[in-house]
Each structure stands twice: as structure tokens, then as C-alpha cells.
Simulated scan of single mutants.
Amino acid sequence: MSRFVVSDHHFGHANIIKYCDRPFTSVGDMDTTLLNRHFETVEPDDVVIHLGDVAMDMRTGEDTIEQMEAIGGDFLVQGNHDVGLSDGQAPFPVVDGCVLTHGEYTFYCTHRPEDVPDHWEGWVIHGHHHNNDLDTYPFLSYDQQRVNVGVDVLGFKPVSLETVTTLIDECDPGTHLKDIDAASDLT
């Protein structure tokens, strides 16, 4: 069993294709590709921690629940497009933030990195910023101790905590990896 983190699928959200310059011709094409890449990566016994914006679900939470169940999501850190869902409504925990540990690393997980508690001094795993400001919010910023797990920087699939910690171990101070593909040179 592995633990995976991912954010910002935006299932069913047509405008996200243009907003993030996603290489899809339609919402159906995007949703199908996201699901296929998810299941090429995640095994049924793996744990999926989603860091928000599962779907464009601003009212009831039904779309978020449906898509989380489709991907086998185990835990949701609520994003700004998941506001229709509250903890207790879903068959999985819904929180504003959480702490994960893997090996010697401890991560604060949140949708928006701006919401990290002031007292937190360690690594942060977040979403929200997609691929729209890779200078500030790349996949991995060693000096800022941040990892952006939005699907737009992950090749549209989740990343394991094992991969994240291995990459951090391989990085030198100053390392700034814009996306997961840039990380392939390290391993």
C-alpha cells in the first residue's frame, strides 16, 4: 500500500481547460484522461489524499462525492471549489488541512499554501495554483519547502509520498522543479 497526493482535477469544469491550457478537446476528453491516468498509477489498496478542487461543486457536494468515489479517494482537504461539501456529509473525512508523515519528513497539507498556519516551519504540500505561476508555485521548491500537487504539474496523475520524499532527498538547495517531468533528471 502506498499513499498518494493529488489536487485540482476539476472534473466537469470546462473553463479549466482554457484557464490552465490543458491539452483536452472537451470536458469528456479531460475527465476520461484524468481517470485513466489515475488508475494507471494508483492500485486499489493505495490511499489517495486529495488536496481539493475535485470537481466544480459549489452547492451540494454531490459531484465531489461522486468523483472521489470514482477515484477511490480516501481523504479530502477541501478546496475552494468543494465548498458545497462539509465533513459528515461524505463517506470520507473532509478537513481544511492535515499533517502527513513519510519517513523523516512531515508535511502540512492544504489546498491553498496561503492557508498554512503561521507556526508551521516544515514542508508544505498544496494545490490551488495549477500551472499558472510556476516561478512562485512550481512542482517542487526546495528553498520554500513546498510541493505543488496539482494535476497540471503532475502529468495529470497523482504522485506518491515515496516519490515526493525521494525527490526531496535528491535535491540541492536552490532546486526549483517546474513540473514532475523536470524531476526525471534527478532520479
Rank of each mutant, 00 (worst) to 15 (best):
M1C: 04
S2F: 03
R3V: 08
S7P: 08
D8H: 13
G12V: 00
H13M: 06
H13N: 12
A14D: 08
C20K: 10
D21A: 10
F24R: 10
V27R: 07
D29S: 07
T33P: 00
T33H: 07
H38Y: 15
V42M: 02
P44I: 01
D45Y: 13
V47M: 10
V48R: 00
I49L: 11
L51Y: 02
L51S: 11
G52S: 04
G52K: 00
V54M: 07
A55D: 06
M56G: 05
M56H: 15
E62L: 15
D63G: 05
D63P: 08
T64C: 15
I65M: 03
E66T: 13
Q67F: 14
Q67Y: 15
M68H: 07
M68N: 13
E69R: 15
I71T: 14
G73E: 10
G73R: 06
F75K: 04
V77K: 01
H81C: 10
D82H: 06
L85E: 14
L85H: 14
S86A: 09
F92C: 04
V94P: 09
D96V: 08
D96Y: 10
L100S: 09
H102W: 00
G103Q: 10
E104A: 09
F107V: 10
T110R: 03
R112Y: 10
E114C: 09
E114D: 15
V116K: 03
W120T: 01
W123D: 09
W123P: 09
V124Q: 06
I125A: 04
H126Y: 13
H126A: 06
H126G: 12
H130T: 11
N131T: 00
N132C: 04
D133W: 09
D133S: 07
D133L: 05
L134E: 06
L134D: 08
D135L: 11
D135C: 05
T136L: 14
T136E: 15
P138W: 02
P138M: 00
S141M: 09
S141C: 08
Q145G: 08
R146T: 14
V149P: 13
D152R: 09
P158V: 01
T163N: 05
V164R: 03
T165Q: 06
T166E: 12
E170S: 04
C171D: 02
D172C: 05
D172S: 14
P173H: 04
T175Y: 14
T175M: 12
D179E: 03
D179I: 02
D181K: 03
S184H: 05
S184A: 06
L186F: 10
L186G: 05
L186R: 01
T187N: 09
